[in-house]
């Protein structure tokens, strides 16, 4: 419990980001209704659930890319849409799935674009900008690549560059939409360890992850979604149980302690042939 004195603590861990009684969806399709989700301060929150359960939709709502139909999203005690766009971007960084690097842009240029919310017409490259970019590249080990064009990099390097761009934004909150997709297992772990480090240094992280074991291993707080509803929240051992995995994913399994980290580990059972 650190530095909670600045505000009245209603709960033991105050929420940084909250979804309150929100319905989320797109023009013709509602994905979630009456959704309540809380992201505790200082947590590494991971959202899990089967495909099309509303994980990414929830993340889009948390990052203001999607405006709730009803209900609201609250950031640091204030409604998200009452902030200016740049103000949100100074508090909340997002790694979207759809990022495209402009042709021929170099790594340093791309990472430097993360400084946009801190810059103005006259203040385009302050000492602080330079430090933030250099630190972000160092933290993601892309400093050596900094002059190279992004389109020449491998998938793993490229994803690290995008993470560096989000880090350069220097936000206390980070939202990550399936950050490990398309990476091999070594690069996945690499990236997750990086997130764990960020978590240890005081960042609040929210990620959508597909791999349950990785989620259980790195998260401090899990949110399990199914068909747009929150099925369970809590620590990995509270959420990742054989019953819950069966309920949420329809996958019969056993849950054993991970031999390395002692976090819950899901071992799927062979599916009886008759069900297929």
């Amino acid at each position: 419990m650190t530095a909670l004195t600045t505000r009245p603590a209603r709960t033991p861990v105050p929420a940084r980001l909250e979804v309150i009684d929100a319905s989320l969806g797109y023009a013709r399709r509602t994905v979630c209704e009456h959704l309540d989700v809380t992201v505790p301060d200082g947590s590494f929150t991971v959202i899990i659930g089967p495909n099309a359960c509303g994980k990414s939709t929830l993340l889009r709502a948390l990052s203001r890319l999607l405006k709730p139909g009803t209900g609201r999203v609250v950031l640091d005690g204030r409604a998200l849409d009452s902030y200016g766009t740049k103000e949100v971007a100074r508090r909340l960084g997002l790694l979207p799935q759809t990022a495209q690097a402009p042709d021929g842009i170099t790594v340093a240029d791309l990472v430097a674009r993360g400084r946009h919310p801190h810059q103005g017409l006259l203040r385009q490259w302050t000492e602080e900008d330079e430090r933030a970019v250099a630190d972000a590249m160092a933290a993601t080990s892309v400093t050596d690549l900094s002059g190279r064009p992004v389109d020449e990099l491998s998938g793993g390097q490229r994803q690290r560059v995008w993470v560096a761009m989000v880090l350069a934004q220097r936000t206390p909150l980070l939202l990550l939409d399936e950050p490990t997709t398309f990476l091999d297992i070594a690069h996945q772990i690499d990236l997750l360890e990086l997130f764990a480090d960020l978590h240890r240094t005081g960042h609040t992280l929210v990620a959508v992850l597909h791999d349950l074991n990785q989620a259980a291993r790195y998260a401090s707080h899990l949110i399990a979604l199914r068909e747009g509803r929150v099925v369970a929240t809590g620590t990995p051992w509270e959420v990742v149980t054989a019953d819950l995995v069966e309920e949420v994913f329809g996958l019969p399994c056993r849950v054993v302690p991970d031999p390395v980290t002692d976090t819950p580990m899901v071992v799927p059972l062979a599916r009886p042939r008759s069900t297929r």
Binding site: Y26, A27, R28, Q97, T98, Q100
Partner: peptide, 12 residues
């Protein structure tokens, strides 16, 4: 898909 933004269109 009937995406709300122009960007999502580029996702194959």
């Amino acid at each position: 898909p009937d995406a709300p933004t122009g960007a999502a269109r580029d996702v194959p």
